[in-house]
Design a protein around this nucleic acid. Sequence first.
DNA 1: ACTATTTTGATTCTCATTATGATTTCTGGA
DNA 2: TCCAGAAATCATAATGAGAATCAAAATAGT
Lengths: 146, 146
Amino acid sequence: MPDKSDLKKAGLKTTVPRLKILRLLEESSQRHMTAEDVYRQLLDADEDIGLATVYRVLTQFEGAGLVIRHHFEGGSSVFELNEGKHHDHMVCVECGEVFEFFDPRIEERQNQVAAESDFCIDDHSLYLYGVCKGMKKNGKCSKKTV
Amino acid sequence: MPDKSDLKKAGLKTTVPRLKILRLLEESSQRHMTAEDVYRQLLDADEDIGLATVYRVLTQFEGAGLVIRHHFEGGSSVFELNEGKHHDHMVCVECGEVFEFFDPRIEERQNQVAAESDFCIDDHSLYLYGVCKGMKKNGKCSKKTV
DNA sequence: ACTATTTTGATTCTCATTATGATTTCTGGA
DNA sequence: TCCAGAAATCATAATGAGAATCAAAATAGT
């Protein structure tokens, strides 16, 4: 149930398309969506919002910190609501499902590694690609880990 | 100095374009190159190889395990020779330079995290984006780490 | 409600990459 | 060596995600 104040806080004026898109992001059963996904779900809900607007608004939301954009392997960008808790992702290459995780030791090592090279991190992305529990035929992991 | 045997081993027939591209990848001062980069460097060397061929061959090389393709934020794919030693990357958003690193503890934690979710990793990507030593104005890291 | 400003939506455009179809190059056997 | 068939290449066209354009519509402050 997003309202005007969420957009205001983000420094964006309140408009119908922005509210609809924000609401969709909050209420959809899918947490990770492409612009195309968002557009289709709006169409399904009989909202009359153009694809160009979806792209534009998602990009504005990203700039305002309302959503986070990810580039998973091989496809289009996906967006998720930014709930302030950083996390990384496992992507199932069989079913497309996305799982979130957070590991403080990984984060810590990243900072360490960067510090050792005098590299100043402003962002990072970590994606694990593989087969999720539900998609495993025999319950066993046959593939070698990198 | 790549020769026929490298292509043969990879299950690819020996052709002039494939040899030229492989040689370029080995000899170029740039280790991480886009298809466009490869194409331009071939042009500069007066090689008559089409852009489509460059894309096709790089994709074949990837399939054969000769090169690794990366998708850094915001741009085109970059390719690097696969020398068998897995590593991750730091990308300087100021100068574009790419630094490689390997941290066994990060790798270990990735496997651990995946195992905890019964997730079977076949691949992963970790990119750190930020400002490299050489590009830092005051020598200090002002930005907050994620 | 009135007006200046911003946003929208249809379309067009760009750019990376892939597909196509014709032509050229290899390859292996006669 | 010559030839047929296969495979690879080239130029070009097609695709698809995403950004830019611009007239029309919606918004915020008076």
